[in-house]
Every structure is written in C-alpha cells, then in structure tokens.
C-alpha cells in the first residue's frame, strides 16, 4: 500500500457524514455590495492603490505613450522591457523610438538571458487584465508576450490599465470572467510595489520585486 492509499484510507474511514451548512460566497458578497457609480468606484480604486504607494497617472488613448516617456525620463530609465507582440507594446516602442530610451523585448526563453534580465533591465511595461477597487489591486495573466518575470524582476514596473476593466471585488472578477472554467498557468494579483516589514515591523519597499509600481490609468479608451 502506498502512502497515498494509507492517508486516504484513514481519511475515508473517519470522514464525517453529518450535514454542514454549505458555504455561499455569492450571497455574502451580494450582501456586502456597494451601490456606487462607476466613477466613484474608479476614484476608490485610485485612492486605495495610491495609499499602497503605487504611482498613478490618469491618461487617455492619445497621450499615454507620451506620459510613459515622461515617467521613464523622470526616473532616469535608460531602457524599457516591453512586448512588441501586443498593441500597447508596439505603440510604446514607436513612441520611444527616437528618445534615447532603448526598447528591449522578452523574445527568448528566460534561460537564454536570465542574467541580463536581472542585471540590466531598468523598467518594464505590461498590460493588465483588470483591476479590483476594494483592495486597489491589478490583475495580470502573464502569457507568451508578457511572461511572468516581466512584472517581477525589473526595479520599476509600469502597467497600462483600461479603466473599464475595473471590478468591485476579487470575487466579482473571478465570477464575471468565469475563471473557474480555465485559469492560465499563472494568474497574479498585484497591489503595491514589493515590500516587507520583517525587520522590527518597519515597512520597507523594494524587497525582492519592483521597488516602484506605476499605473497608467487609461480613461475613455475608445
């Protein structure tokens, strides 16, 4: 008999058969729902994220690439990791073409340029799948264009977020988008720059991930 069979055997032998109240998260979150207009929800999202030391710039379709350039210049970034395979990556690449800020692409498997990614990249730009107002949170589903480490290793992470993708809660996001029907290999919630309070409960930013998190909040995207 394997360890699996023995463990399961013990559990099945003592499994309770009494009735439990079935959990109903949907009813709970419905009871807690706020009745707010979408602009109020957006303001709440902005306030909450800013309180967690995320830098937010309100932009529109016409000026976000310009704002991206301003942010990178202000922070003294010499290069930017972006995804040329996405519309926003391409647009950013074009906008930065003659600015002196080099555009890098995550176009190889990590093993082929790990040291370069860790040591030489100043900032990255990714999109976001959505966001959560309640906790001031970005939702990212890394993929072949914007792999997992793109939002983690560069010291500055810049995120282009479409304001219309904002959800009230984490629960609302996963329910309305039917996450349970199919999750990617890695799904992420990101709510601030990397941080720690492991030394004497003193909050310090830039623990292992990005030291700065910048959101370009795209309003009136159409």
């Amino acid at each position: 008999m394997s360890a699996r069979d023995r463990i399961l055997g013990r559990l099945y032998a003592s499994q309770p058969h009494d009735d439990f109240a079935a959990p109903n998260p949907a009813a709970w979150f419905a009871s807690q729902a706020r009745h707010e207009a979408s602009n109020e929800r957006l303001e709440r999202f902005v306030r909450t994220m800013e309180a967690g030391r995320t830098e937010i710039h309100r932009v529109n379709n016409g000026n976000w690439a310009q704002k991206l350039h301003e942010v990178l210049s202000a922070k003294g970034c010499g290069n930017l990791l972006l995804a040329p395979g996405t519309a926003h990556g391409q647009r950013a690449g074009e906008a930065l073409a003659s600015t002196g800020i080099a555009c890098l692409a995550y176009d190889r498997p990590i093993n082929e340029w790990k040291a370069e990614l860790f040591n030489d990249v100043h900032a990255s730009l990714t999109g976001a799948r959505g966001a959560i107002a309640e906790t001031g949170t970005l939702i990212l589903w890394p993929d072949e264009h914007e792999p997992r480490l793109m939002s983690l290793v560069p010291p500055i992470h810049i995120v282009l977020l479409d304001a219309t993708t904002l959800h009230a809660t984490f629960f609302d996001a996963m329910q309305s988008e039917h996450w349970a029907a199919g999750l990617p290999t890695n799904a992420l919630l990101i709510s601030s720059p990397s941080k720690t309070a492991d030394i004497q409960q003193t909050l310090a930013y830039g623990a292992h991930g990005p030291k700065e998190l910048v959101v370009l909040l795209l309003e009136n995207a159409q």
Partner: peptide, 16 residues
Amino acid sequence: TYFNMISGPRKPHEKD
C-alpha cells in the same frame, strides 16, 4: 502585495 495562483508548469510557447 502578491497573490500568486499557479495552475501548471511552463507551456511550450511560454518563455518563463
């Protein structure tokens, strides 16, 4: 800061 949901290893077309 992070909530990390892992549902599988790297797929063939993924880069990390």
